[in-house]
Nucleic acid binder design. Sequence first.
DNA 1: TTGATAATTGGAACGATTCTAATTCTCTTT
DNA 2: AAAGAGAATTAGAATCGTTCCAATTATCAA
Lengths: 143, 143
Amino acid sequence: MISDTQIASVAQRLSDRGVRPTPQREVVYQVILSKRDHPTAEEVFDRVKAQMPTISLATVYNCLDALVQSGLIKQVNYVREPTRYCPNLHEHAHFHDESTGEIRDIDLPPDVMDRLRQLLPEGFSATSIDLSFRGSTAQPSQR
Amino acid sequence: MISDTQIASVAQRLSDRGVRPTPQREVVYQVILSKRDHPTAEEVFDRVKAQMPTISLATVYNCLDALVQSGLIKQVNYVREPTRYCPNLHEHAHFHDESTGEIRDIDLPPDVMDRLRQLLPEGFSATSIDLSFRGSTAQPSQR
DNA sequence: TTGATAATTGGAACGATTCTAATTCTCTTT
DNA sequence: AAAGAGAATTAGAATCGTTCCAATTATCAA
């Protein structure tokens, strides 16, 4: 369930970032925030339709693009899989479990980020750093 | 220009990895080795056609898959761009220059790899680690 | 040389994403 | 509160990269 104050704060966060807060964008953003996973655009579309059945897939793509551009969400992509979207704005990496397909966030301490940046030759500056692991987990994740 | 010994060694490397050395695979592999960049499948297709005009795009994809699976080349992918292929087997990251579109390899020292692996929680084991930077270079790359 | 298996081929099919052009909305200015 | 300009939304068509398919051809072991 979503309270009015949450809706308000979502709209607020959009305007704060210079994103015109349309109902569609609010719902898309709300949907992404309300579940800590990494949905594809199609999955977002399905979830959003529950609240706003008339929204179109093109709009979902447009909204996701606006959110990504404004820095409110991030994109994750794996070879030959649809792009996924991620509401976690902390510096983090992704672990892609090959057996379950699950994607888990891995915290990235600042010292590691610094160390990574040091790898770049003179004159290179990175606006984003993407780190992703692929592998398997010994035990099933408990959550 | 490609000498016979180079061809031979390409075929040899294929069989060493358990990849049946067909003419198509040899040419695809040779083409990828002969230029230190990160071509897409279509680009590989174009280059290969110069030597073997009858090859089909499907075969190029098949060959690239075989090479990736056997560990002879790597895949690189960026959000909403076609998959790219990379002959550099050393541990390395990629730097994606946003203004030129160029992709540069960045060496990854073993200690950094170790540090990255340490980030994984208990029970997680990574079969591959992908690190990629996105940004711009102050000076144009000299090479 | 033969047979079993694997690879290649061209074209159709597919999934993800983008484009298009018409409509509707939002927000600012009156 | 109304109007107008620009932005966002929409449905559907189009596009792009990739995979699938069924028929043909090649490779390798016996």
